[in-house]
Design a binder for these strands. Structure first.
Length: 113
DNA sequence: CATATGACGACAA
DNA sequence: ATTGTCGCCATAT
């Protein structure tokens, strides 16, 4: 889980990533739900940028009538990520990890090739 | 060890 | 576009 938090912390301001994407980078191929679980466990006041994580469909995971939805939307717009009718333009705001990150972060083995 | 649970995702209607 | 199913997988009970 710490692994997931670390990965999420790598998402830069002004960009977003899907649960599944985070899971992959974190080394849990089909663990999208694990990311959701990890986020639910976030301690209050954590510095982890949870608001930059959205569904693969580009929508915010919370229902639009919840305070959490509003909080996430607010935070995103504060960093210039437009949220239109609960959705974000992934084509434009999707985070694309650099080679650097893929290289130094992971615990994966590149010597297995 | 057996089930139940999700801030998910892909796909068929 | 919406809705329902099913697959996933770490945790919790």
């Amino acid at each position: 889980m710490q692994r997931i938090w670390d990965t999420i912390s790598d998402v830069p301001r002004g960009k977003v990533a899907s649960y599944g994407q985070i899971a992959e980078v974190a080394g849990i191929p089909r663990g999208a739900r694990q990311v959701g679980y990890a986020l639910r466990q976030l301690p209050r006041g954590s510095k982890v940028p949870w608001h930059r994580i959205i569904q693969a469909s580009g929508r915010i995971a919370f229902d639009s009538d919840t305070p959490q939805f509003r909080e996430q939307k607010k935070r995103l717009q504060q960093e210039d990520v437009p949220v239109i009718r609960g959705r974000i333009d992934l084509q434009r705001y999707r985070w694309q990890p650099d080679l650097d990150e893929l290289l130094w972060k992971p615990t994966l083995a590149w010597d297995e090739e």
